[in-house]
């Protein structure tokens, strides 16, 4: 029968305010071909979102904007879905060229399994995974909501990956209870913490949800270290030196920064550190993620703030 290449579909599910948009923003801006150290890891993602505005993509990343689509400079595309999912899938599947990966930001009340139905009927799609975000700070409210509790349970039930968001806003007891509750409900599903949507991309994309391919358990089980903050005026050579020192445990870093030579973008991806001049105003935002063996967030903060100009 049909032997067309199948496009993986990832569904990001979770309640309003659970951090879906941050995660998607992270995937979109970090995933394009130009960020890729090799052909293999670069993905042109088409994201289907409820609302562009909330996504808040850096203006410098936007290449073109027409109708309900935004094309990013890195090859990714963003489409708004309104309330007609079928129409959106028709549009996206008629794109040329077709994307490498489709990520859909489900609405806070969507049942991800129903969305997954599109992948099961479209020979050109396959379900890669359902990622459900659980807001640690609101779990007790959401799981008892008189109108939404059934939805909440269905979203967790459908997950191939559970992400606990805003862990910093919940006390230790709440967090521990939540983790054991989720583990009891979904014993085989990997679980990780996420803050501001920042995760290694390969954790989220490539789940092969319907094919039970083994997960990189050690990364997920032990979590990973990350730190994000704003850096003012840091010379690129100094920053690169700090990153070199963190090898081999550093996995990913990105920043839109400034030094005496002007604004620049820095990427560390797939072991490669690159910098490029940047046309807009540098936000100073900087993110770093690494394996558990890397110094912890507090230590990272110290390291990166060390010779920041006052």
């Amino acid at each position: 029968m049909n032997r067309l290449p199948q496009i993986p579909l990832t569904i990001i599910s979770g309640f309003l305010g659970s951090g879906k948009t941050s995660l998607l923003n992270h995937l979109l801006t970090q995933s394009g071909l130009e960020n890729a150290p090799s052909e293999k890891s670069g993905r042109r993602i088409t994201a289907m979102v409820n609302d562009f505005g909330a996504l808040n993509i850096d203006a410098e990343l936007i290449a073109a904007k027409h109708g309900n689509q935004i094309a990013l400079a890195n090859g990714c595309v963003c489409c708004s879905i309104g309330d007609d999912l079928m129409r959106s899938f028709m549009d996206v599947m008629q794109q040329s060229p077709l994307p490498d990966h489709i990520v859909i930001e489900a609405s806070g009340v969507a049942e991800p399994r129903r969305i997954a139905g599109f992948a099961s009927v479209d020979p050109q799609l396959r379900l890669d995974g359902i990622v459900t975000l659980v807001d640690a700070s609101a779990h007790n409210v959401h799981s008892k909501d008189p109108y939404l509790a059934d939805n909440y349970a269905k979203q967790i039930e459908a997950a191939h990956l559970l992400l606990i968001s805003k862990p910093d806003l919940a006390d230790t007891a709440t967090l521990e209870n939540l983790e054991s509750e989720l583990a009891a409900q979904k014993p085989d599903v990997p679980m990780a913490h996420v803050t501001h949507g920042v995760l290694p991309i390969d954790l989220v994309l490539g789940l092969n949800g319907d094919h039970k391919i083994p997960q990189p358990q050690e990364i997920i089980e032990h979590g990973f270290v990350q730190w994000a903050g704003h850096l003012t005026d840091i010379p690129r050579a100094a920053l690169i030196a700090k990153l070199e020192n963190l090898r081999p445990h550093v996995l990913r870093a990105k920043g839109v920064l400034r030094d005496a030579e002007g604004a620049y973008v820095l990427h560390l991806a797939g072991g490669l550190i690159t910098t490029a001049p940047y046309a807009g105003k540098a936000s100073g935002h900087f993110v770093i993620i690494g394996q558990p063996q890397m110094p912890d967030a507090a230590a990272l903060e110290k390291i990166f703030r060390q010779n920041e100009a006052a």
């Binding site: 999912l85 079928m86 129409r87 028709m90 139905g117 599109f118 099961s120 009927v121 479209d122 050109q124």
Partner: peptide
């Protein structure tokens, strides 16, 4: 249902909604 319609539209290449 919706998925049945989607399947038929994808197969025939006709986008009734457009």
């Amino acid at each position: 249902g919706q998925l049945g319609y989607y399947m038929a539209m994808r197969t025939t290449g006709i986008n009734l909604l457009a």
